[in-house]
């Protein structure tokens, strides 16, 4: 259906972005496909081998899944930061991803977690790392007729933790000015693997390997944190806009990277 529509065609999951764009007159869809009643897109499956979250699962539903929240607190918290309780009842991770805003809350956390998107079309199914989906503000790598069916999170090794933090001027209802997601695993008290991702500091969320390198092998001491912050700030290519300045975003990216790493470290059982 999506493939054959000649006009502007959109997938409707929670609608919390799509309906706003329709209201403001930015888009006039010729076709809307509501996916909320498709069973495969509507469920969460969680096992020792990994977690699969359907594209139509709302933020609130994800937040209520205790096992997922225990395994991936950062991912769940990030998703639960999208909008108000009203928006949580409707919004989805996949919608957040496909809306392709550089400031999307769930995306840095998903990338840090090594999440993959299950992309389906009439002709088949492929699995793509989340960081390959968004190519720029409002732009994705999805081809016409392709939709994301689910997000898959890998199995969680022991002594792992993740965290997501964003800076907003108010306490709620804002879009992230800067954000940071960190996921890491410990071995004998030291960080063995880590992924550090920043949001709202570039056209897409950015994975910062240098920031991960800064803390791998460490016990997240002052020196490692300092280097992590510096690497985060160095990875920023932000813009000046109504939500923040280049200077501000660059500085605070380091601060949030540091703080998110500390939380993730603690969650992994680090001391």
């Amino acid at each position: 259906m999506l493939e054959s529509e000649a006009g502007a065609a959109f997938v409707l999951a929670g609608g919390t972005d799509l309906l706003v764009r329709m209201k403001l007159g930015h888009i006039e869809p010729a076709l809307l496909v509501d996916i909320k009643r498709i069973p495969a897109m509507n469920s969460i499956t969680h096992s020792a081998r990994g977690t699969r979250i359907g594209a139509a699962v709302s933020g609130a539903e994800l937040g209520e899944h205790k096992a997922v929240a225990r395994a991936w607190p950062g991912v769940v918290e990030a998703t639960n930061l999208i909008g108000s309780d009203q928006v949580q009842s409707r919004c989805t991770m996949v919608g957040n991803l496909c809306n392709a805003s550089p400031a999307a809350d769930s995306v840095p956390a998903m990338i840090a977690a090594g999440a993959k998107a299950v992309v389906v079309s009439r002709t088949g199914r492929r699995t793509v790392p989340v960081e390959k989906i968004v190519t720029g503000p409002g732009q994705t790598s999805l081809a016409r007729g392709e939709v994301i069916e689910a997000i898959v999170l890998p199995a969680r090794p022991a002594r792992s933790g993740d965290a997501y933090l964003r800076f907003i001027p108010r306490t709620e209802m804002d879009i992230a000015v800067v954000s940071a997601g960190v996921s890491l695993t410990l071995e004998r008290g030291r960080i063995k693997t880590a992924r550090v991702v920043l949001g709202a500091v570039a056209p897409t969320a950015v994975l910062v390997p240098a920031a991960a390198r800064a803390i791998i092998g460490s016990k997240l001491d002052e020196d490692a944190l300092h280097k992590l912050a510096a690497a985060c700030s160095a990875a920023c290519k932000p813009i000046d806009d109504k939500r923040g300045t280049i200077e501000y975003r660059t500085k605070v990216a380091g601060v949030l990277g540091k703080r998110a790493a500390q939380i993730a470290f603690q969650r992994a059982g680090g001391a």
Binding site: G15, T16, K23, D34, S84, V87, R90
Partner: peptide
């Protein structure tokens, strides 16, 4: 507001709180 930012249009849909401006009648 019509854009889900003020909550004045809050209703419940199957017991969950939503902004009715962000839901289509057809849904």
């Amino acid at each position: 507001c019509g854009t889900g930012d003020c909550g004045a249009c809050s209703v419940t849909l199957d017991g969950r709180l939503v902004c009715s401006c962000l839901v289509l009648g057809a849904e």
